[in-house]
Design a protein around this nucleic acid. Sequence first.
DNA 1: CTGTTAGCGCGTTCAC
DNA 2: GTGAACGCGCTAACAG
Lengths: 342, 342
Amino acid sequence: MPDDKPKITIYDVAKRAGVAISTVSRVLNESPDVSSETRQRVHIAIDALNFRPDRRARQLAQQGSPTLAIAIPTLTTPFHNSLLKGIRVHLRERDLDLLFCDLGSKERHLALVQFLQRGAVSGLLLVGLKVTDEIAGELKSMGASVGIIGYRHEDFDSYWWDDVEGARRAVTHLVSMGHSRIGMIRAAADSRTQIRRIDGYRAALQAGGLSFDDHLIASGTTEKHAGYSEESGYEAMGKLLELDEPVTAVFCTSDAQAMGAWLAARERDIRVPEDLALVGYDDVKTSRYVGLSSMDQAMQAVGEQAAVRLLARMSGESDDPPGSFCYTPELRVRRSSAYRRD
Amino acid sequence: MPDDKPKITIYDVAKRAGVAISTVSRVLNESPDVSSETRQRVHIAIDALNFRPDRRARQLAQQGSPTLAIAIPTLTTPFHNSLLKGIRVHLRERDLDLLFCDLGSKERHLALVQFLQRGAVSGLLLVGLKVTDEIAGELKSMGASVGIIGYRHEDFDSYWWDDVEGARRAVTHLVSMGHSRIGMIRAAADSRTQIRRIDGYRAALQAGGLSFDDHLIASGTTEKHAGYSEESGYEAMGKLLELDEPVTAVFCTSDAQAMGAWLAARERDIRVPEDLALVGYDDVKTSRYVGLSSMDQAMQAVGEQAAVRLLARMSGESDDPPGSFCYTPELRVRRSSAYRRD
DNA sequence: CTGTTAGCGCGTTCAC
DNA sequence: GTGAACGCGCTAACAG
């Protein structure tokens, strides 16, 4: 089934057009040093033979291999969609290829190393991976330009979020509303992100003169979306509402959790936001609760920025020292009816 | 910043290990025809020089290029995540690369052709793209194996969903519950999928002796997620509830729409499912309504199956005639409390 | 077992 | 303006 087609090359085109391969090459690369007449002939031959230059041979020949790779863990959050979207825009303009590096859910470091060992990529976008010294070394040893998303590292361009500050802003808002029993719904896993959000939560409480209480932090048990799912929020909220002294406000570490929490509250005839203040994270969908600004949009912007910078480095246009770009989630308070625009 | 590092090749390794390049190549390809002693030396040299074989040169030399590409439109539905997840599993096992082909939101056909023109990919997974004769021709003209997801085509392996039947099952259920005013929430765009779901809706109504009424079909105006968003469902439900004779049951073409519809109903103090029966599509999250089985899970399964078949074709292991694989959404009725497992 | 050599498909100096 | 020859980094027959 495969390889029954005698791959056509520039030689075939050259022969058919009655020129040399170099001429064909020039036409392909839009060199001005070709008479428009010959150019015509070549184009005709190309169309007739349905010739397509081989991307690999091409990249091999022209030293600067414009191959960009993106490494993403299997843990697929919805944000990756937006991220990809942002990146792809700039790739299309430059006829660049995007190679996918699959970091499994476990043993990601190993997977990455294996991928890198498989050969030259001139640019790499690392998403949501802790960059250990080992990884950093490997990264530098290959000649590629690197961009890191969702983690901070001195030696590479990195794009990250100030989760401490984001959480602090959210909880501070709840404090300023006069709440004194402020709970938090977290994901079960102890990710850096998670810990930082807890730090922000704690900081805001203390700044407001409230004491930090472990019992007010709850999480669900489902592993879907790494604990950031609606189900998880629902389950966690149930726990917070069964406390002797129930919470009156809750900071959730994802928008989906907030949705689940809202459901759990409604099932108990607790009204949101009248009886219960809810703050979501990542996205602001409705007026059901106060939310932190859309990470979704932010991700797309990050993708674009990262792509642009990486491309500049790859092409040698830029030689800036590694930059650190931080996005701090903004607090957005909605009081209008559901889905109404600002 | 780039190219200050004199790319090390097998020649360097060979020299350092005191062997010929072919020997290095053999070690790289795990050929048994190498004495373990030389193998050692080569490995040491490789490590010392931190040598990485160039994937492109490699692919160029070995005729069969193990490069798989996936073409996905920018229109990012959440399902693509699951799809990718399913595909990636099998790629990792075989050390295969996944190339991204970015089909913009518009002019996708052109984008695809341009991508294919850029050179050899031995396998292509086409997602959510209408395969015109032009495309089909282009696809065949290149030697690659092809898999089509979300569209049906005679000449290629295709994986699709029976949306007519899915919708029919959903609405039939509502009919059997005794409802006579059954509305439908659709996406605004006239996609094939959308039309089929409407067909199923209509078929079920007629089979139940109910008349089809245009006014009972509503959609939102937001373009987010191509009209399948929560916002869209919310907006559409508002319209259905403002009818002179409001609906008592609604079939939604996405789970998110159903969620939005549910919110709209609750805002008007209409209880679900007591006063209003709601059927979602694609995913079954909660007991808020009856739902059709998870497309999310299905997508992952489809991804796996498509990958396996494609890989078999690529490697020449399989030469089956093109297959057509259909997934029919199942109706799942949930009566238990939110998030309880079956 | 290991070294030599000829390509893979294309870009790129050079002479013509 | 155009053509021949060499090289990119590696694999795959061949010899030895």
